[in-house]
């Protein structure tokens, strides 16, 4: 494993921990999109189908369990926890899941590396992950006051994607690594979705201002 991959995974882990910290400690999920969190739970559930049948490393299995466990527990907190769910901005978080899930599923049926159940599910999870942040970005744009933890959560998620691209470039040159169009293009699309957010994040950081996205 190279340094970019490890840094990417750790950034991903940090993003989840920041979100859990906010929800668990402050007992608030204000500004967090339940739609995005449910999409991530679906992404991990469909991607890690082989978690108990295909062993790669202890690190790999452990991280998969963390991402599965954290994404489902965040959804549980936002839907069921009696204090946390009160802070959920239901009226603002109106993005329709199905508009993302259905096209991703159809695309995975058509464009995949092999037409098998596991392979189609894996491809679906890649396409869905690429766009899963959209409800969250829409919610951020509607929320006039983005709190620090929510801003950091989205920043860390975007950072994780950017580091994965560096990881692929590194692997391409150092390993007998083939071109993985599906993984790379969906990963690139996903990272580009953060470009606008990054711009305003750095802008607010440089000027020491509160993060606000233009309406």
């Amino acid at each position: 494993m190279n340094i970019f991959r490890l840094a990417g995974d750790m950034t991903h882990l940090a993003s989840v921990l920041v979100l859990l910290l906010k929800i668990h400690t402050i007992k608030s999920c204000a500004g967090v999109s339940l739609k995005t969190q449910e999409l991530y739970a679906l992404v991990f559930a469909t991607r890690y189908l082989d978690i108990f049948t295909h062993f790669i490393s202890i690190y790999n299995t452990l991280m998969k369990l963390i991402f599965l466990g954290s994404s489902f527990s965040i959804v549980w907190y936002m839907r069921r926890h009696k204090i946390v769910r009160r802070s959920y901005d239901k009226e603002q978080d109106t993005f329709r899941h199905l508009f993302l899930i259905l096209p991703c599923f159809l695309l995975a049926l058509v464009i995949n590396e092999r037409f098998t159940f596991k392979e189609v599910m894996w491809t679906f999870s890649l396409y869905l992950e690429a766009v899963a942040i959209l409800p969250q970005l829409v919610l951020l744009q509607r929320t006039r006051n983005i709190d620090n933890l929510t801003g950091q959560y989205v920043f860390l998620l975007g950072g994780y994607r950017a580091l994965y691209i560096l990881n692929w470039i590194y692997r391409y040159f150092t390993e007998q690594h083939f071109v993985h169009w599906i993984t790379w293009i969906s990963g690139l699309v996903q990272t580009l979705l953060y470009a606008d957010f990054f711009y305003y994040y750095f802008h607010s950081w440089k000027n020491n201002e509160k993060l606000q996205l233009p309406a």
Binding site: R5, D9, S57, K64, E113, W122, H177, H180
Partner: peptide, 10 residues
């Protein structure tokens, strides 16, 4: 092989 190198990622 080719398949494995991507699936070892998260």
């Amino acid at each position: 092989d080719e398949q494995e190198s991507v699936k070892d990622e998260l």
